[in-house]
Amino acid sequence: MRGKFITFEGIDGAGKSTHIESVRAFLAARGKTVVMTREPGGTELGEAIRGLFLDRSMSPASEALLVFAARREHLERVVWPALERGDWVLCDRFTDATFAYQGGGREMGFDRIQVLADWVHPGFAPDLTLLFDLPPDAAHDRVAHRGELDRIESEVSDFHVRVRDAYLRRAAAEPDRIKVLSSDQSKETVRSRVLACAMQLLGSAE
C-alpha cells in the first residue's frame, strides 16, 4: 500500500517545526515507518541549494527555479521511493511554500509558479497539509529570539503579510487538503488539532 505525504507549512515563527516530531511519534506508535525531511533540502544537492537560497541575494525567479530544482531531486531520491515502499513522509515545507514566498511574498504571481509545479511534479500533491497560521508581527517576535536571522526571515513586515495572505488563499482554494491551525493558541491545543488531522488521514488509509 502506498504511503502518505504530509507537509507542514506556515510563515517563519508560526511553530510548524514544533509539531512535526509529535506527528512522527504518533504514527510510529501505530506501526508506520516515517521519513522526516525538509525543503529546500532533503538530499545532498538540496542541502547545497538550501545554503545558497538562504544566504545569497538573488532574483525572485532564481529563487523559484532553485527551489524547484531541489524539489525534483528530493522527490526522485527521497519522497517518491519512500511512498512506494509504503512509508509515511513528513516534510517541512513543499510547493505551497513556493506559492506563498515567491508567488506572494516576492509578488511573482501564482501562474508562473503553477507552470513550474506542473512541470516538476505533474498531478502530485500532498495527502495532507497542515498550515500553521500566525499574524506576522507575532511570528517575528518568536523568530527574533532565535538569534541571527537568514535573509528570508529578515524581510520587511509587508513581505511576510503577503506570504501569509498567499498561504490563506491556497487554503481557501483547497480546504480538503490544507488544514489551517491557529498558532496563537497553547501548544497543547494546537498539538491536539494536529494529531486529530493525522488520525483522520490514518483512518482513511486503513
Rank of each mutant, 00 (worst) to 15 (best):
Gly42Pro: 01
Glu44Ser: 15
Gly46Val: 00
Gly46Ser: 08
Glu47Met: 05
Glu47Ser: 07
Glu47Lys: 04
Ala48Thr: 13
Ile49Trp: 00
Arg50Ala: 05
Arg50His: 03
Gly51Cys: 03
Leu52Glu: 01
Leu52Gly: 00
Phe53Leu: 15
Phe53Pro: 04
Phe53Trp: 09
Asp55Pro: 04
Ser57Leu: 00
Ser57His: 02
Met58Gln: 10
Pro60Asn: 11
Pro60Ala: 10
Ala61His: 15
Glu63Arg: 03
Ala64Met: 14
Ala64Trp: 08
Ala64Gly: 07
Leu65Trp: 13
Leu65Ser: 10
Val67Ser: 00
Val67Leu: 07
Phe68His: 14
Phe68Glu: 03
Ala69Ile: 10
Glu73Cys: 03
Glu73Val: 06
Glu73Met: 00
His74Thr: 10
His74Gln: 14
His74Trp: 13
His74Gly: 09
His74Val: 07
Leu75Gly: 03
Leu75Glu: 02
Leu75Asp: 02
Glu76Val: 12
Arg77Thr: 14
Arg77His: 11
Val78Cys: 15
Val79Gly: 02
Trp80Ala: 09
Trp80Thr: 06
Pro81Cys: 06
Pro81Asn: 05
Pro81His: 06
Ala82His: 11
Leu83Val: 12
Glu84Ser: 12
Glu84Gln: 15
Glu84Arg: 15
Arg85Cys: 04
Arg85Asn: 08
Asp87Tyr: 13
Asp87Trp: 14
Asp87Arg: 12
Trp88Cys: 02
Trp88Gln: 04
Val89Gln: 01
Val89Ala: 11
Val89Leu: 14
Val89Ser: 03
Leu90Thr: 01
Cys91Asn: 10
Asp92Asn: 13
Asp92Met: 07
Arg93Gln: 07
Phe94Gly: 03
Ala97Trp: 01
Ala97Asn: 11
Ala97His: 04
Ala97Phe: 02
Thr98Trp: 06
Thr98Ile: 02
Thr98His: 06
Thr98Leu: 07
Phe99Cys: 03
Phe99Arg: 00
Phe99Glu: 01
Phe99Ala: 02
Ala100Ser: 07
Tyr101Gly: 05
Tyr101Met: 00
Gly103Ile: 00
Gly103Asn: 02
Gly105Asn: 05
Gly105Asp: 08
Gly105Ile: 04
Gly105Val: 02
Arg106Ala: 13
Arg106Cys: 12
Glu107Ser: 13
Glu107His: 10
Glu107Ala: 13
Met108Gln: 04
Met108Cys: 00
Gly109Lys: 06
Phe110His: 08
Arg112Glu: 13
Arg112Cys: 14
Ile113His: 01
Ile113Trp: 01
Gln114Thr: 11
Gln114Glu: 14
Gln114Ala: 14
Val115Cys: 11
Leu116Ile: 08
Ala117Pro: 00
Ala117Gln: 10
Asp118Ile: 11
Trp119Ile: 13
Trp119Gln: 07
Trp119Cys: 08
Trp119Ala: 12
Val120Leu: 03
His121Leu: 11
His121Asp: 14
His121Lys: 12
